[in-house]
Design a protein around this nucleic acid. Sequence first.
DNA 1: CATGAATGAGGGTTCATTCAT
DNA 2: CATGAATGAACCCTCATTCAT
Lengths: 206, 206, 206, 206
Amino acid sequence: MGSRERRQREKEQRRSQILDTARKLLFKKGIDATSMNQIAKNAELSVGTLYLYFKNKESLFAALQEEGLTLLCDTIKEESTKGLTPREKLERVALAYMDFSEEYRKYFDIINYFLTSPEIVFPPSLKSRVDEHVNRILSVVEDILKKGISKDADDRDIRRLAVVFCSSLHGMLQFKKLQNTVLQGEDFRDLYLSSFDCIVRSVLCE
Amino acid sequence: MGSRERRQREKEQRRSQILDTARKLLFKKGIDATSMNQIAKNAELSVGTLYLYFKNKESLFAALQEEGLTLLCDTIKEESTKGLTPREKLERVALAYMDFSEEYRKYFDIINYFLTSPEIVFPPSLKSRVDEHVNRILSVVEDILKKGISKDADDRDIRRLAVVFCSSLHGMLQFKKLQNTVLQGEDFRDLYLSSFDCIVRSVLCE
Amino acid sequence: MGSRERRQREKEQRRSQILDTARKLLFKKGIDATSMNQIAKNAELSVGTLYLYFKNKESLFAALQEEGLTLLCDTIKEESTKGLTPREKLERVALAYMDFSEEYRKYFDIINYFLTSPEIVFPPSLKSRVDEHVNRILSVVEDILKKGISKDADDRDIRRLAVVFCSSLHGMLQFKKLQNTVLQGEDFRDLYLSSFDCIVRSVLCE
Amino acid sequence: MGSRERRQREKEQRRSQILDTARKLLFKKGIDATSMNQIAKNAELSVGTLYLYFKNKESLFAALQEEGLTLLCDTIKEESTKGLTPREKLERVALAYMDFSEEYRKYFDIINYFLTSPEIVFPPSLKSRVDEHVNRILSVVEDILKKGISKDADDRDIRRLAVVFCSSLHGMLQFKKLQNTVLQGEDFRDLYLSSFDCIVRSVLCE
DNA sequence: CATGAATGAGGGTTCATTCAT
DNA sequence: CATGAATGAACCCTCATTCAT
């Protein structure tokens, strides 16, 4: 009576337990320096158990990446509804993106890590899942743009603008890594928003 | 006499020999799948010799990264002189950047790899060398901007604009990885140039 | 009532179910590459259940070996009755033996595997069961010989001849493994029968 | 000054050291129960060193098998020269074969193990090396037969007879495993020689 | 300077077996 | 009876690095 449910719950707990430990280690030491044996030891589980829940090391980390991407997608979608005008909405998206990269810095790092690393290292299946999430994010931006730009822009144009918008912000956030050296003395948020202004000015017909 | 010079020449030849082999393997198999023993064997040298010329594996690959960055810097600097107007010069820079990411794809990958990965994985000394190169590139852009924008913009403003310019392009190139999936059907060069237009329109007072 | 019988029947069904799956996997992938977990999954049973029906992996495969030996014994016995003269009977036996090694190639392999491997690997109990079956086969041959050779041969002589007969055939079949290399271009059946002739000529007084 | 030679000698010593340890363990525990780590520990070497001398576990054991086969070949060849008549020569071969299977029992076991085991387990390259040795042995027998049988027998016939001769003896030796059970009370040497007689009587025209 | 044999901790992964439910 | 999650020792193998020559 409910014992099956309990079992199910326990199984999900274990999964979380593993992911939590893996995440912690990943954030502390990087992907290559985190071994399955370490994860097992830290999670107070046997190695075998890890392989009961994840096919291999790669899929364990892919699960972490997806966690991050899902979180990002959801946040962006939610934030976008809060703004009134298209410009406001885009600003919300931009800031949500930055906030994510700060609050969930390590998630952002790992996402970037997977996104940037040479394809040899990661299999196609992984890439495709990333793409899916990227698509979801682009869609949100496109929906906003549709209402903010001239009516004769076709879907193609809109997608392009969405890509320009997102990639610029992404590039900016990438450069944040340099704020203690190259960008010393700058307030990054200001910089980021001026970048946002710069793009929006060209993208939206205001 | 002259034997010291010969010795010196031979030493540099060895160094190149090692770097050439390492580069070839890196480009073919990725950073993790390239071992010191493999490099030694392919370079027809002993493992010990590798350690005579490079402190460890990491610094060997850092040397390759520097190669890439130097190449990038030089190309950008040279291209920038070819344009006549500031706009033209910036376009040259932008295209040089993209060309580099295509022609020296693997260099770009490895640069990005080092740039993006969590700082823990790589020692500060490495990051600082990257920063130095980024500064050199930004300087080039700043010099162009100085002549293209209103005289009352101060150094700070110029630097900010340079950062916005570069980071946007970089973000765009990052997204290139997605061209076979998310950006299917788009001509990437067009996309890239429209991104360029978008930024330049706001940055330069034309 | 009858429910006990049903239970019994179900138990035997389970056992067969397990053996069937194990046999299929064994024949497909070999003994080492077949794990208990795999058998369980393929049989749509839990691992635990496997251990309810077989003490361990080894005894599961020993059961398969016995299956094979039983099949071989029965076939030989049956065939031996079909011939009219002792010579004919022996030929039947010889051919049945070869046919078995072809049709039930994998059974033959596994029997041989157990027979040939150093004793340390397999416990005595297993060996003794094999011996029992070998005895049964020898008996069949002895019975035939008793009628084909001079009356003054005693049991000892008969057994010896039976052993010579069987072991020669067995050795021949062992060499069949080499037919694609060492014996290239030979028709194995011919070879086998010429070996049979050779022995029978000496064994029987015709 | 001879230092290179000494190095070479040391290398071969190491190789022997490894093979000796591996052989000892193999003979004691069987192939599957002998791990590379165990060999390393027993040989007082590091695991890495093992892999300096042998590509992998398999090739280490293949080397042992070849040792055995080479020994067998050489012994047979040498013995065959000692006999005067063809019959005598064949007897020498047969007895050498049996002696080998006794003295180098474990070698014989491992050879048989490789010969008999299902092909899945061992790669073709291994099998082919075994075949080569088998061929060498058959050649010796053929050369003897050529002088002992009627002149109009062609090469094909001779090879067949050689195969029958060898395989019968081999089968007999296989059955030796059963001497404590099935063949209880028999003197195996007698049995073996009666098998030899049986075959030779048919093969040679005396 | 150059060599390259040696190291050995550590990598990811498998698997027969147990036992609480 | 049946389950199947959990175990953890053991597997084979790699590799950056050292050091005696």
